[in-house]
C-alpha cells in the first residue's frame, strides 16, 4: 500500500470538531501587514471559540474570503500559541488579492487544519537542515518555532534561505533574530543583489555545501518552488543525506482539502491528505516527471 512505510507525520485533524467538513469558522483580522512588496501576513482571532484548533507545523487551512472563494494556505504562526492564527501568502490570485485588501476588524473564515506535518518529533537528537525558497519559509516557520522551543532535543540546526532579491526576503527581522542565536546557523542568500545588499548572492542550493551538519544524522525540511526542491534534494543527497530523511512540502490545486474533490491527486496520493509534507523518497519518481 501507498503510505505503509510512511513516517508518522499524521497530525491532529478537524474531523471530530466539525460535523460538516466543508463548513468554515469565522475569524477576525487582528493585524495585517505587508512582509514584502507582494507578500502579506494576517493575524486572525477566532470568533466562535477562544482558541484556534490545534495544528502541527506544516499543516494548512482552507481560507475563505466572503463572496470570492476559498484556497489552501499553510499556517505560519507559532503552534504553541492558541489565541492567534497566522497566515502568510502572496497576493497573486483572486482570493489572495482580496485577502490582501482586508483590514483590521474585517472578517474571513477558515477551516482546518489539514494534511501531514513536518516530522519535528521524529527528528529528535538529529541535526536539522531547513531549506526554504521565497515564500516557502512560511510553512516552515512553525517548525522553526517548535524547534526553537525544544532546542535541547535537536543537534545542530541550520536554516538556509534564498529569496529572489533582498526586497523579497520574508520575515527579515525574525531571520536576523534567529541569526543572532549561538545555537542556530542561519544563512541567507539572494538570486540577484539590489541596492545596498552585501550579503550572499546565489541560489539557495549553493549554501548546502558549506552548511554545518552531519549528513548521516540529519533530517532536512525543504519548501519552495518544485524546481528549487529538486535541486536542493540533489545537493543534500550529494552531501550524503538519505532521501528518506528529506521532507518536502508540495502545492496542488485543492477545492475540498478532505480527500473528496479529486483535484490534488499526485500519482496515487492526495496531496491534501497524504501531503502536503512528503518524505522525498516517496514522491521522487513522480516529481521527476512532467504533468503527473
Amino acid at each position: 500500500m501507498l503510505m505503509s512505510d510512511a513516517p508518522s507525520i499524521t497530525a491532529p485533524t478537524a474531523s471530530d470538531r466539525i460535523s460538516d467538513p466543508m463548513l468554515p469558522s469565522p475569524y477576525r483580522v487582528q493585524r495585517a501587514r505587508w512582509d514584502t512588496d507582494d507578500t502579506f501576513s494576517l493575524e486572525l482571532v477566532p470568533l466562535d471559540s477562544d482558541d484556534i484548533p490545534h495544528f502541527a507545523p506544516g499543516q494548512f487551512n482552507m481560507v475563505y474570503v466572503y463572496g470570492v472563494g476559498e484556497i489552501p494556505i499553510s499556517i505560519s504562526g507559532d503552534p504553541t500559541r492558541r489565541d492567534l492564527l497566522v497566515h502568510t501568502t502572496r497576493a497573486v490570485g483572486t482570493v489572495t488579492r482580496a485577502m490582501s485588501k482586508l483590514r483590521v476588524e474585517d472578517m474571513l473564515a477558515a477551516r482546518g487544519p489539514y494534511g501531514t506535518a513536518w516530522p519535528v518529533a521524529e527528528a529528535h537528537q538529529k541535526d536539522i537542515v531547513i531549506v526554504a525558497g521565497g515564500i516557502g519559509l512560511a510553512p516552515l516557520r512553525p517548525a522553526m518555532y517548535h524547534i526553537m522551543a525544544h532546542r535541547e532535543q535537536y543537534g545542530r540546526v541550520v536554516l538556509l534561505y534564498g529569496a529572489r532579491t533582498p526586497g523579497d526576503v520574508l520575515y527579515r527581522k525574525q531571520l536576523e533574530q534567529w541569526r543572532a542565536h549561538f545555537d542556530l546557523d542561519v544563512f541567507v542568500t539572494v538570486d540577484r543583489a539590489t541596492g545596498s545588499w552585501r550579503g550572499s548572492v546565489g541560489l539557495v542550493t549553493s549554501l548546502i555545501g558549506r552548511a554545518p551538519f552531519d549528513p548521516l544524522n540529519t533530517v532536512a525540511l525543504v519548501c519552495g518552488p518544485e524546481v528549487m526542491m529538486r535541486f536542493t534534494t540533489m545537493g543534500l543527497e550529494k552531501r550524503g543525506v538519505d532521501t528518506k530523511n528529506i521532507y518536502v512540502s508540495l502545492e496542488r490545486n485543492m477545492k475540498c482539502a478532505i480527500r473528496l474533490c479529486g483535484h490534488c491527486q499526485f500519482g496515487s496520493t492526495f496531496v491534501c491528505k497524504d501531503g502536503p509534507v512528503f518524505r522525498y523518497s516517496q514522491v521522487q519518481s513522480l516529481l521527476t516527471k512532467w504533468e503527473v
Binding site: 463572496g67 470570492v68 477545492k255 475540498c256 473528496l260 479529486g262
Partner: peptide, 26 residues
C-alpha cells in the same frame, strides 16, 4: 467519477454569497 469543484455565487446586492459544489472533470 467523483471529482467536484466549488463556486461562489453572490446575489446582486452582494449581501448573500452561496457556496456551491459542482461536478468537475479532470
Amino acid at each position: 467519477c467523483f471529482c467536484s469543484t466549488v463556486e461562489d455565487v453572490t446575489d446582486l446586492s452582494g449581501n448573500t454569497a452561496d457556496r456551491w459544489r459542482k461536478w468537475d472533470s479532470c
